[in-house]
Design a protein around this nucleic acid. Structure first.
Lengths: 142, 142
DNA sequence: GCCGGAATATTAGCCAGACTAAGTTAGTTG
DNA sequence: CAACTAACTTAGTCTGGCTAATATTCCGGC
């Protein structure tokens, strides 16, 4: 028999793959892709700079540039400048972007709520307890 | 304050996004992509048909065709035919494919084990308890 | 003050992976 | 046996990721 962490790792690995598919279905058919939704979410509190966004989403800068270009073309975000440093570009939600974000969030939450509603109270409690642990996974890089 | 399932859904949503990034890092730099790894995994028990593979991975047939083409070019899988129905193509692991699958699995498990080792016993227990619940999520389509 | 290196973004070009539409070949059925 | 259906593949398009190369701007030292 194998040692416990390895066995657990295998199970986690399997479940992760399953969840990826779930997440994919959760956003299928929405007016924004899941990446676009994620970026819009980052902008909700206020303007951000490109480097911040790229880091937060764990992608390279050029990737974020392309994403923002698309969102800008769609009228969901607007670029601005930092008066203190002419190198940095800021990005913020437009009114339309904010509306879209909230609409998609509602749909997404509704979809997940439906899944969660199919669970028992105990299962939901178990899940809720594990969320902080899952969030901790991968926090320690390398 | 919002009702409980909605709140939980939001948290799940956030954690899912986090896990997707974790999973991405887990396979980064490996000799196969995470999708290729997943397909190889499906072939471990034995030959499968294209439609089966596409369904299992929740992709359209043409997508799976392309994936299998690449794996075949790489010498990791081989196509065959069903003697009972000339329309169906079967796919199976080559020896090399099986070796590769096992190697990647080891690396992947090792990576995850490392993450899990950073948790306390309690956290691991909490996580282990939640896995069956997570696996249940999304099982009921639509 | 200005010159060279570092920081911030963008552009260009590549690849994986997803989709739909259309085409081919082989069974199935009225 | 003709028409439909099923199983795949091909072709074309899109998103989203990467690296390498380029332009701007800032800053530290001389």
């Amino acid at each position: 028999m194998r040692d416990d962490p390895t066995r657990l790792a295998e199970q986690v690995s399997t479940v992760l793959r399953h969840l990826v598919l779930l997440l994919r279905r959760t956003v299928a058919g929405q007016p924004v892709t899941s990446q676009q939704y994620a970026v819009l979410g980052s902008l909700e509190p206020g303007p951000r700079r490109m480097t911040e966004l790229a880091e937060e989403h764990a992608v390279q800068l050029p990737t974020m540039t392309v994403q923002i270009n698309r969102l800008e073309d769609a009228g969901l975000v607007a670029r601005g400048s930092d008066p203190a440093d002419a190198r940095v570009r800021t990005v913020e939600l437009t009114g339309e972007g904010r509306d879209r974000l909230l609409a998609v969030r509602r749909a997404r939450i509704a979809h997940l709520s439906q899944e969660l509603a199919a669970l028992t109270d105990d299962e939901r409690a178990t899940l809720a307890a594990a969320l902080p642990v899952l969030a901790k996974l991968g926090r320690n890089p390398r």
